Amino acid sequence: MSQDPTTDDLELDIDELQTKLARVREEVGRRLVGQQRVLDDLLACVLADGNALLESNPGLAKTLTVRTLANVTDLDFSRVQNTPDLMPSDITGTEIIREGEGGSRDFVFEQGPIFANVVLADEINRATPKTQAALLEAMEEGQVTAAGETHALPDPFFVMATQNPIEQEGTYRLPEAQMDRFLLKILVDYPSLDEELAVVDRYTGRVDEAIPVEQVLSREELLDAQTLTREVPIADDIRERAVELVRETREADHIEYGASPRASMALVVTAKARALIEGRAYVSEDDIERMAKPVLRHRVVVDFRAERDGMTPDDAVDELL
C-alpha cells in the first residue's frame, strides 16, 4: 500500500470533497433507485478504506450498486462468483509456464480477479472455508502470496462481499475472524412501493444501452479523500462514547461475545466519513449512533436465551444505545 500523504500534499480540501461526494450520490442515483442508506454506508466504507459485507435476498441491485460506485470513482471492478468448487488460486492467481524465445520456458504469475480496486465477492458464503481464507490476507494486508512470492494489490483496494441470509443449503458459515475483517455489514432491504414502481418504469422500457454515469472522483482524489476523512475532528466526549459503546458489548448479559478494539476504531473512522457525506467537517453524536449497527451487527453474538426470545444483534445494539 502506498504511503499516506500529508494534508499539505493533498489536491482536495474538505469543501471540495463534500461537493464531489454529493455528485457521487447523484451520479449513482442515475442507475440506482432508492437504497440511499446502502449507498451512504458503502461510501463511508470506501472513505474509511475498509471492506463491506452486504446481506440481502437476491435481486436487490447489490452488484449494480457496487459496479456503479466503482465507475463513478474511476476504480477497476472485478466480480468473483463464489461456488463450492472455487479454488483459492481461482481468486488470487497462479503460476503458469510461458514459452519464450528460443524455446525457453519460464514460470509467470498470472493474476487472478483479486487484482482490482473493487472486488465483488458474490455469495461469499458459498465458497469453502479454504477459499474464504484466501481473501483474509488480501483484505487485511492488501497483498497476496503465491508460490512463496508476495504480490501487492492495487491501491486503493476493497472487497465488497455479498451473502444471502435465507438460503443455507450448500453454504459455509463465515468464521468470526473473517467477519471481523469487514469494516461494515450492510443490510439491503426491499424497496418501497414508489421505488419499486420507479425501478419497473426505468428498466422495462426500451433500453438501448446501460444508463451512462460520469466519473466524479479520480483514484488519486479518492486516496486524498481517505486521508481527509481521518483528519475530521471529533470531540473527546463523542470519541469516549464510541469506545464505551463497544466496551459495553463485552459486558452486557445478553451478549455472548462482544466486539474488539477494532470495532472502536471502525466506529470512529466511519463516523468521520459519515460527517463528510452529510456535509459537515466535524463528528456529531448522531454519526456514532447511525454507524453503530453497521459496525457492530457482525461483531457481536447474542446468547442462546436472547436468540430464543427473538433478539437480533441490531436489537442488542439498540438496547445499548
Rank of each mutant, 00 (worst) to 15 (best):
K185L: 10
Y172D: 02
L193K: 08
G170C: 03
V188D: 02
V188Y: 09
E167F: 12
K185E: 09
L187T: 14
E195V: 00
P175I: 03
N164P: 10
Y172C: 00
L183T: 14
L183M: 15
E167H: 06
Q178T: 04
P175W: 03
V188A: 12
Q163V: 09
L193M: 13
A177H: 09
T162H: 04
V188H: 07
A177I: 11
L183W: 12
D180M: 05
K185I: 12
T162R: 09
F182S: 13
E196W: 03
E176N: 01
V188E: 08
D180G: 04
F182W: 15
P175M: 02
V188S: 09
M179T: 10
L187K: 08
L184E: 05
R181C: 05
G170N: 06
D189R: 13
I186A: 01
N164L: 11
I186T: 14
L193P: 05
Q163A: 00
F182Y: 06
L183Y: 11
Q163T: 02
K185G: 07
Q178H: 03
E167N: 10
P191C: 04
E176M: 02
D180L: 03
E196D: 08
F182V: 09
S192T: 15
N164R: 08
T162M: 11
L193Y: 14
S192Q: 10
I166R: 10
E196V: 03
D194T: 10
P191I: 01
Y190C: 03
E169G: 05
L174E: 12
E176V: 01
L183V: 07
A177N: 12
K185R: 15
Y172E: 05
S192E: 15
N164S: 07
Q168H: 15
T171G: 11
Q163N: 04
Y172K: 00
Y190K: 09
P165Q: 12
A198T: 01
L184C: 12
Q178G: 04
E169M: 06
